[in-house]
């Protein structure tokens, strides 16, 4: 097996590998065998994941297998629909075929959330610099992805927009950089500070409103093998017109919220407990409230400056 960038593979090779279910995407700690015959999904993949590493060879050892396909033969041709099939049953409404990219991304999330058995997964974005990592916990409408994308522009490296992947042995956070999922108003916000060319086309009419993806950066992929030690945990709260505010949180409260956000904490069991407790020993946690991205950046920068390197 050898590694090549996706963009180095001829389009017909990508098409063939995808149709055979042998496009082995190697991202961070996971290898995913991708399979699809959908041209829209293929186009999205070759664009957004162009710098990603692909394992090339007859067969690879993979962590996940994901097929993005029509739910049945009829729906392959009539009022075309598409579903993500991660190899196990998971209730999901088929989407119109134009939302194939969303299916792909949701399917990849599903694989990590429910099929990772070596790392504890928490629902959070993670960025880092040489000091360590910032975990941005997910709250509905909290602005996790917007803040994550904004911090990328401030020189932080992206580990993951969706998952804090905690190595059970080391308690370090592992990188799994993927395109950052942006919803509704945050799409335009990120277009402004990251540049329009860094954001994908907008998918409209999804179950979550409009969705677009902030493009993966080559630098984040090149450093994806570097773990990060968590130093700061943020629980963002976006409120329109709200004055910026910071409140220190009890670490025990942070632990409770993180555990509640984990899809596999109970499956991993004691190693997850140890890893989480060890990670939390060295961090501070804050709830930040803000009304716009500038305020959130200001708050995070202030908190980060106070963190010991």
């Amino acid at each position: 097996m050898k590694n090549v960038a996706l963009s180095d593979l001829p389009p017909e090779t990508v098409k063939r590998l995808l149709s055979e279910g042998r496009l082995y995407l190697h991202l961070g700690p996971y290898v995913t065998a991708l399979s699809t015959k959908d041209a829209g999904v293929r186009e999205f993949l070759t664009d957004m994941y162009q710098d990603c590493s692909i394992l090339v060879g007859e067969e690879a050892l993979v962590d996940f297998s994901l097929e993005v396909r029509a739910p049945n033969l009829v729906r392959r041709y009539i009022r075309r629909q598409i579903v993500a099939d991660p190899g196990f049953y998971f209730p999901a409404v088929p989407l119109p075929v134009k939302l194939g990219p969303l299916c792909l991304e949701m399917g990849m999330n599903l694989c990590v959330a429910l099929q990772s058995f070596r790392q504890a997964i928490f629902h959070a974005g993670v960025v880092s610099d040489q000091k360590g990592g910032i975990v941005i916990a997910a709250r509905s409408g909290g602005g996790k992805s917007t803040l994550t994308a904004a911090l990328m522009e401030e020189g932080f490296r992206l580990l993951s927009d969706e998952f804090a992947i905690l190595c059970a042995e080391t308690s370090f956070l592992l990188a799994y950089p993927r395109p950052v999922s942006l919803k509704n108003q945050s799409i335009d916000v990120v277009r402004v500070f990251a540049g329009a060319d860094q954001v994908s086309d907008r998918l409209t009419g999804t179950p979550k409103g409009d969705i677009a993806y902030r493009r993966l950066r080559k630098s984040d992929l090149e450093t994806a093998n570097l773990p990060a030690k968590a130093k700061l945990i943020l629980f963002p709260r976006f409120q329109a017109e709200a004055a910026p505010a910071v409140e220190k949180m009890d670490i025990a409260d942070a632990a409770m919220q993180l555990i509640a956000s984990s899809p596999n904490y109970q499956v991993i069991g004691e190693p997850a407990f140890h890893a989480l407790m060890q990670m939390l020993d060295g961090v501070e946690a804050y709830e930040i409230t803000y009304g716009n991205t500038e305020d959130s950046l200001m708050l995070v920068k202030d908190l980060w400056e106070a963190v010991d390197g």
């Binding site: 009890d250 670490i251 632990a255 555990i259 904490y265 069991g269 004691e270 407990f273 939390l280």
Partner: peptide, 22 residues
Amino acid sequence: MVTHSFGDTTFVYNRQSGTTHI
């Protein structure tokens, strides 16, 4: 039991049930 304390709060992992208690 496996325990870990943060201030006055102790997290207790119960090996038998696989459950975490506070």
